[in-house]
Design a protein around this nucleic acid. Structure first.
Length: 747
DNA sequence: GTTGCGCAGATTTTT
DNA sequence: TCTGCGCAAC
């Protein structure tokens, strides 16, 4: 096997197959290529069987990419090779070994929203209002525990003790776990801790897997949490052939439990570990790489890589100061038009933003310019109400203990089983210690024994029809395993189809279309699996909720959050809304330097996506939460050395009329001198990074008030005559003033 | 059991 | 500004 297409460090990363290895792979350093070569090398040169290799990643995106690249470049069939996500791997182990843990193999996997529903019910049951304890905070708490690798029955560590100190939350955690168990369900975190639990209680099962997988590979290592780290450590304990690949500078999911210590402390856990750095960048121009390196070098929590590239210098980064958010969107729209006129293809262009909410204005601008675009990972298909409803039907068929799914659909479409009847059923289920579905079965079977519930005739017949439908589909599913058929039966006989068809609104029609799309997703799944079943389909969609793209790649602009851009690259990148309080977010600024470091990594990720051109925009004033805010440029902009960028100002001129306004700017005919940039008849000052121009009192600036004395501007809203500022004075007093009336002076 | 109003709160979201 | 809730009224 030839390895001459690799550079020296890449080749080393391929050849050091035995013992612990950590590959620190910078952005655009050919990581996937190296990993694929490594696997190929194991298969072809070392004669390792594909069954003995386990490659895990965090995201489906990465797993898919690796699988594709492998099958493209390898002669050996990779069918037996496991390239999968942590969660999918664990789900498979748990289903195979389900008997050990008192789960049945058809357990349901709950996603975050279902977890929240359970928590809400739990809180309600205890009479705790959601204001007192937010369900989100409970979910985060539980997730935090599981991310550390803790499961009920494990000895507590000091870290866990900290969690257990809060008795109320700890109690909720325990009850939540019980509730999941009763529902024969597992949440995302539970998939990992479930396997840890299994391995620690049943050494013979662990040994089986330890012996099976001789070579372990972990991609996206910077995103792993403690639980996942423990999982791979324990799996690789005997062979110690553990290879992890990651980039500490691209760790942007710590709020999801990703633990950067997994990278920083790898050598402590494996003192004999070989550390290989991939520092040559093949993606971006020299200016972009050097600028990004300067920015990220300000972080303390890193191992320190020095990225370099042989690529061309390229153009300066453009930093564009826009008058307001509308001007910003307009600028990007026009600039894209220019690129397109110069022959750039739209699929080579991406717009990144820190928050989803920023996509709207850009979308408007692109629509106006008649450019096709795609918002990557906007509203998720499987999050839609009608989809969740039908999924709930399927879940009840698969796992009748899934009471959460059942409560969702027992009265959808309305069949007269309202909250009062439901409450009665739930109470009875608790009394007889059975699941909700089981109690309904009993009631339908022997109505006479449940006279005391005084359920109406209407309710009784609705319940019996419901049970009949579910049972029939269960039988169908067990005999044939025909998901498509089951789905159709559920959709029609539940009355859901009729219910939606009666809805003549646009929304109703859209919902029907979505249900059709769900149908095609099932058909597609069915064709891809030799032994299709509803259980497997459901698992697929909870663990990987991306809807498979149909057909050929389309030529459209990609819009996405910076988080969503990780792992991607585009020749032309626009990064918008780069303002203090937005990027870095105000939350990170509130919570301190560690959080801001993560924002900086995020900023670094955004920069390093760009291959040829990087355009960073920000607005002097932006409509946020209903009022105009002046945040000022992001601190990260000042961290880019000036030699790497051009700072220009963009103001939309007064509109003459809609038609001609789009011809106002010609970005090509730009000439520059040291201080100014000239476009056509306009002169744009090349600005050194100082404060914004529109507000005379941007947040952070110091002022003198004739009465109150010296203070700092906290917040500024409105502009011109209407500008209002909030000022924090020395003695802690906060006051809000209309600028035009207040005796204020900048100092 | 459903609809409607007022009020608070509003990052990121690979699984 | 927009959404999602809790609670009140039909």
């Amino acid at each position: 096997m030839k390895l001459d297409f690799l550079n020296d460090s890449q080749r080393e990363a391929v050849l050091v197959t035995d013992g612990p290895v950590m590959i620190l792979a910078g952005a655009g350093s050919g990581k996937t290529r190296t990993l694929v070569a490594r696997i190929q090398y194991l298969l072809e040169e070392k004669g390792i069987s594909p069954y003995q290799i386990l490659a895990v990643t965090f995201s489906n995106k990465a797993a898919r990419e690796m699988r594709e690249r492998l099958s493209r470049s390898s002669q050996i069939s990779i069918g037996a090779l496991q390239v999968t996500t942590f969660h999918a791997f664990c789900a498979k182990v748990l289903r195979t070994e389900s008997t050990y843990l008192g789960l049945s193999r058809n357990f349901t996997i709950y996603d975050d929203s279902e977890t929240q529903s359970i928590i809400k019910t739990l809180l309600a049951k205890r009479g705790i209002s959601q204001k007192e304890i937010s369900p989100y905070s409970v979910a985060a708490y539980i997730d935090g525990i599981k991310n550390l690798g803790f499961y009920v029955g494990l000895k507590r560590t000091p870290e866990i003790e900290k969690y257990a100190d809060d008795l109320r939350l700890w109690d909720l955690f325990l009850e939540y776990e019980q509730e999941l168990h009763r529902s024969n369900a597992v949440d995302f975190g539970g998939l990992i801790t479930g396997v840890l639990n299994l391995f620690s209680n049943y050494p013979e099962v662990l040994t089986k897997y330890q012996e099976k997988f001789k070579y372990l590979l972990v991609d996206e290592y910077q995103d792993t949490n403690r639980a996942q780290f423990e999982l791979i450590t324990i799996l690789g304990k005997i062979t110690r052939n553990l290879c992890v690949v990651g980039d500490e500078d691209q760790s942007i999911y710590s709020w999801r439990g990703a633990d950067i210590r997994n990278i920083l402390d790898f050598e402590q856990v494996f003192p004999d570990a070989k550390i290989i750095k991939l520092e040559q960048n093949y993606r971006s121009s020299k200016k972009i790489i050097e600028a990004a390196s300067e920015v990220i070098s300000r972080n303390y929590a890193r191992k320190g890589k020095k990225m370099w590239t042989n690529n061309q210098d390229g153009n300066e980064i453009q930093i564009v100061e826009c008058r307001d958010d509308r001007a910003e969107a307009e600028y990007i729209g026009q600039r894209i038009r220019k690129l397109s006129q110069q022959g750039a293809s739209l699929k080579d262009i991406a717009v990144f933003y820190r928050n989803n909410s920023h996509s709207r204005l850009i979308e408007d601008a692109l629509r106006k310019e008649k450019f096709p675009y795609r918002v990557v990972a906007g509203i998720k298909f499987y999050d839609r109400k009608e989809i969740k409803d039908l999924i709930a039907y399927m879940r009840v068929v698969v796992n009748k203990k899934d009471s959460l799914a059942l409560t969702r659909i027992i009265n959808t479409p309305a069949r007269g089983v309202g909250t009062t009847s439901l409450r009665k059923l739930e109470d009875e289920a608790v009394r007889l210690q059975v699941s909700l579905f089981e109690i309904i079965e009993k009631i339908v079977e022997k109505p006479s024994e449940f006279k005391h519930l005084s359920l109406s005739g209407k309710v009784m017949s609705a319940l019996s029809q419901f049970v009949q439908l579910i049972t029939e589909v269960q039988i169908l599913e067990n005999q044939k395993g025909a998901p498509t058929f089951s789905y159709e039966k559920l959709l029609n006989e539940s009355g859901y189809f009729e219910f939606l068809r009666a809805d003549k609104t646009y929304e109703g029609m859209a919902r029907l279309e979505n249900l059709e799309e769900l149908m095609s997703a099932i058909v597609q799944y069915e064709e891809s699996d030799v032994e299709p079943s509803l259980v497997k389909f459901l698992e697929n969609i909870t663990l990987d909720n991306t809807v498979s793209e149909d057909g050929s790649p389309v030529d459209e602009i990609s819009l996405m959050t910076v988080h969503g851009s990780k792992g991607l690259e585009y020749p032309y990148v626009f990064l918008m809304a780069v303002e203090e309080n937005i990027f870095p977010s105000y939350k990170s600024l509130e919570s301190g330097p560690t959080a801001v470091e993560e924002e900086r990594r995020l900023f670094y990720v955004a920069m390093t996506r760009a291959m040829k051109e990087l355009v960073i925009t920000f607005a002097q004033g932006r409509m946020l939460w209903g009022s105009l805010k002046f945040n000022g440029p992001s601190q990260f902009l000042y961290e880019i050395p000036p030699k790497y960028y051009n700072w220009i100002q963009f103001q939309t001129g007064p509109r003459k009329n809609e038609k001609s306004s789009s011809e106002d700017y010609d970005f090509d005919q730009t000439s520059q001198d040291n201080d100014n940039i000239y476009y056509q008849d306009k002169v744009y000052q090349r600005k050194s990074p100082v404060i914004t121009k529109m507000s005379n009192f941007p947040s952070g600036s110091k002022v003198m008030h004739a009465l109150y004395g010296e203070g700092t501007i906290l917040d500024s809203e409105g502009m011109g005559q209407d500008e209002k500022v909030t000022i924090l004075f020395r003695d802690g007093i906060r006051k809000k003033f209309m600028v035009k009336f207040a005796p204020l002076q900048r100092i």
